[in-house]
Amino acid sequence: MADVYRLGFVGAGNLAESIARGVANSGVLPPSTIRTAHRRPERCAVFESFGVRILETNQQVVDDSDIVILSVKPQVVKEVLLELRPFFSEEKVLVSIAAGIKLHDLQEWSGHRRIIRVMPNTPSAVGEAASVMCLGQMATKLDEERVSCLFKAIGKIWTADEKYFDAITGLSGSGPAYIYIAIEALADGGVAAGLPRELALGLASQTVLGAAAMVNQTGKHPGQLKDAVTSPAGTTIAGIQELEKGAFRSTLMSAVLAATKRCQELSQSKPL
């Protein structure tokens, strides 16, 4: 028998929409078991369009849900949780996807300890998210299984200690932007070599997609896959030599470290 429970979203933005759509489309939960609330009718209409139940207030969403996904902007998390604090009974699970807000603060503001923190990324919009979760002190094995199942509906999910979350943000949270720049640069290179823009962009994006799939599906180390396409004195090694001259690897590593550092700084400056 399918595991059916009520899922609520406090915050009905784009990421919440991606998760709700993925959950509904994959059959993890029927759309009728999902609920949210929003002041803007157009956001409500989007959720209603795929069967989500719309309630009048966030308090009603929490009261009427078994698992509550907190998907508001980080700067308003404290205000929202303090307002919803009376509605978090012991049997409810609070799942926060607010970047940079630690379990300790979530527990303090909500008065609740059955919490799971999740860091997804923007490819959730196309079902290819890289998400990581860490468990609060009272989260159960069933809670972990249910939340894992929810986020598998929009991609892949890992479990890690919270101490890694700043680095996770620097890598998978900010990482899509690095790859967009790489795709744009590859396409520009194709145009510089004489290709039409549309063809160059299509080839660049599909090449990145295919290379990522090779790593994920073969289980081989990226260096091994790189060596397999790099013939002696061939075209690929000539290109790789230029990447090494431009410190391509070191620059990407530095980008992850810089984003991690910035996330640490933001995490330390708590909301008022």
Rank of each mutant, 00 (worst) to 15 (best):
L82Q: 12
E83W: 03
P86K: 06
P86Y: 08
P86D: 07
F87P: 01
F88E: 06
F88G: 14
S89E: 12
E91Q: 13
K92Q: 04
K92A: 00
V93Y: 02
V93H: 03
V93L: 15
L94T: 04
L94I: 07
V95N: 05
V95E: 07
S96K: 02
I97N: 08
A98F: 09
I101R: 09
S110K: 10
S110Q: 07
G111Q: 10
H112N: 09
H112I: 13
H112P: 11
R114E: 11
I116A: 04
I116N: 05
I116T: 06
R117M: 03
R117P: 00
M119P: 01
P120L: 05
P120M: 06
P123N: 10
P123R: 10
S124C: 14
S124V: 11
S124P: 07
A125D: 06
A125S: 03
V126Y: 05
V126S: 04
G127F: 05
E128W: 01
A129H: 00
A130T: 03
V132N: 00
V132Q: 00
C134R: 08
G136Q: 09
G136W: 11
G136D: 12
Q137N: 15
M138P: 00
A139V: 03
T140E: 02
L142G: 00
D143S: 02
D143W: 01
D143P: 02
D143Y: 02
E144A: 14
